[in-house]
Amino acid sequence: MAGLELLSDQGYRIDGRKATELRKIQARMGVFAQADGSAYLEQGNTKVLAVVYGPHEMRGSRSRARHDRAVINCQYSMATFSTAERKRRPHGDRKSTEMSLHLKQTFEAAVMTQLFPRSQIDIYVKILQSDGGNYSVCVNAATLAVIDAGIPMRDYVCACTVGFVDETPLADLCYAEEGGGVSSLGLALLPRSSQIALVQMDARLHQDNLDALMEAAMTACKGVSKVLDEVVRQHLQEASMLARD
């Protein structure tokens, strides 16, 4: 049997999107009262919960504290029920550790850590359902949670995974596309200044195609940022309505 046709001649992808179209993004902020900030974000079928504590004093070994800025501590985990086959180890495996590290690097680039010396910010993200683009969805959710916690950032950090098929960049890959032998690239962007917080790619891609792929990734990230911006504004409006009552 022939494999999946990722991009049809008519320009439709397996799930009916066109090459540059993102999946539907739905998000809510402030889902938990106990934490300092929290957000829930769905990007298609990938569903993520992000929770932020802090900034607070250093816990555990004080020696990690930095005198000039806050330390960001990230933990990524996947719920056991997040994939088609039950996951044995929800966190702590190599993949999750790497993902945690990537998130940490991303947010150290975006959060204005110098405002909180000798303190710590904890970001916990949990994948509830996984359908591709886990890293980018986590970044987007965590951004909302950080905003919800009231921690100042340079800009929204928006991330998107893009892939390259038949000389065409595809935005926001779903699971079927990620597994279909596509060279994919993850990009986290500060959209207003077009500064790159993190870019990650471990597949083979010819150098000539990189520019086109980056261009597509940036456009996609800017698309995401518009949606996030709307979510934040909506949340603020609701919060102020409540406060007025």
């Binding site: 799930d15 009916g16 999107r17 999946r23 088609a84 359908d131 779903c174």
Partner: peptide, 20 residues
């Protein structure tokens, strides 16, 4: 969204989005 079952070794549930 719709649910599909495919057989690859065993039965596996595949969830895919479908945009109309």
């Amino acid at each position: 969204t719709f649910v599909k079952k495919t057989r690859s070794g065993g039965v596996m549930k595949v969830v895919r989005e479908h945009y109309l």
